[in-house]
Amino acid sequence: MGDYAGRVEIARPAAEVFAFLADIRNMPRYLPTVTRVDPQGRHGDHDDVAVEGRAEDHGYHDEGWLKAEPEARRMQWGSHGQHGYGGSLEVTAAEGGSVVALQLHLASKPGAAAHGPGDAEMQAALQRTLASIKACCEAPGGAAAQETGQGTDELPDSRPFGSSATMNPDL
């Protein structure tokens, strides 16, 4: 496994995009394998979360942490159960909207190289996740409506974009 990075331009203001992404209630909308995220309390500078989902035809449950830095429009996360899994994203202002830059770090489990996805598959899964973020934020009733509390039930579901590299339990 290793490190993976990607970015996507979104035709919405950076503050709106970050607010949408940092709200854990929205994570199942843009992370294709995630079906539920529950807060588990605040510890120091981060929030603990429990994540449930389905990847490669089986369910998973993981507990991890999420640190949001609204002033910098940056988030970092990791898993308590999957050693070597973590990531970050940053939303920056750009002409015509914003840019979301996503980074993942996935350390190999013993035996994972023989059974897990390769680098090209992981990069493709990361790109599908970025496409899902773009679709959710740019859809009518997307991130801007979420910011004002209107239209959040009308956001598209991300699962048509395929599985995500971000919470694959086989990595």
Rank of each mutant, 00 (worst) to 15 (best):
R7T: 10
V17Q: 00
V17A: 06
R25T: 11
R25N: 14
R25W: 04
M27I: 07
M27T: 11
Y30D: 05
L31G: 11
L31I: 15
P32F: 01
T33W: 03
V34G: 03
T35W: 09
V37H: 03
D38E: 13
G41Q: 08
G41K: 13
H43K: 10
G44W: 00
G44T: 06
D47P: 08
A50E: 09
A50K: 10
G53L: 07
R54F: 07
G59M: 04
W65H: 00
L66G: 05
E71N: 14
M75A: 10
S79W: 10
H83A: 15
S88G: 15
T92M: 12
G97K: 02
G97C: 08
S98F: 01
V99G: 04
A101G: 10
A101T: 15
Q103W: 07
L106Q: 05
A107Q: 08
A107Y: 00
G111L: 01
A112K: 02
H115T: 12
L126Y: 00
Q127V: 07
Q127F: 04
Q127S: 15
Q127P: 08
R128V: 05
A143L: 05
A144I: 10
A144E: 11
A145Y: 08
A145P: 10
T148G: 04
T152Y: 03
D153H: 00
E154N: 14
L155G: 11
P156H: 03
D157R: 06
R159F: 09
F161A: 05
F161R: 07
S163P: 12
S164A: 01
S164H: 01
A165V: 13
